[in-house]
Design a protein around this nucleic acid. Sequence first.
DNA 1: TGGAATGTTCGGCT
DNA 2: AAGCCGAACATTCC
Length: 282
Amino acid sequence: MPELPEVETIVRYLNNHIRGKRILDFIPIGKNNRLFRDHKHPDEIKRRVIDKKIERIDRVGKNILIKLSDGTCLALHLMMTGKIFINPEEKTRVHDRMKLEFSGNTHLVFNDIRKFGRCRIIETPGKLFRRDALSISFAEFAHGLQDRKLPIKSALLNQNIVAGIGNIYADEILWYAKIDPQRSAGALKKDEARRIFRMVHYVLSAAVRAGGTSSRNYQRPDGSEGAYYKIRKAYQRTGQPCFRCGTAIKRIIIGQRSTHFCPKCQLLQKTKDGKKTLVLDI
DNA sequence: TGGAATGTTCGGCT
DNA sequence: AAGCCGAACATTCC
């Protein structure tokens, strides 16, 4: 499941392999191809990218932005099962949806099992995307949570509030921050929001260094696997002991998404005076 | 064997 | 208008 760290890993790889190259051909693959659903016809994209040079590749949230020589950009979103391969074997595989051919006999293939992915042209990138999880300020982050009733877990997954966090890292961030995922976002105290904000950076940058997480669908463009999954603290550790307190990690559903957390360290408990307080002394 | 689970985003509904 | 819910789709697992 490509989230910010996986997409960042891919974007770095693309900058090393296709930056500066010229696009010689754009080939949609297969019938009922939903990859280009933002355009009337894939030829629209083809016409726009052919013969353009790739200036560089950027990332905002989970979006891959391939900046072209004319100032426009080819935007890719991997959604759940999208993968990008550079220079794969000649033969087209089962779920290949699109191929780009570059100068220097280089190829990029967009492979996507479940057809949720997107490929579209964006005229004026920059204005469209904001609030990237690694660029957002604390003030902006706190403002996004302000007055919202939804659970903090759902808020972290909302790309309009903060872009780049998915289900894996949302659980990891809240485990590190010792925050109950069911807490209402708007009801968080400033120091709690601050703690979450810090952990957004801590977890995502650690995951980028690890080359992302390889659970189920994701693998790097060269086919290798990301290492974060091995060092995860909460995600898909249901029943296993919390690394802080030993309590079994619990799995619940929040906003239709499975959520893993420590019911002890991340719990708000009532003290004698009726105030709710976080258990930190473990 | 089939129903549940997987997880991102969007659109429709309240 | 915020938030909830199903849909889009393919595969794996029990």
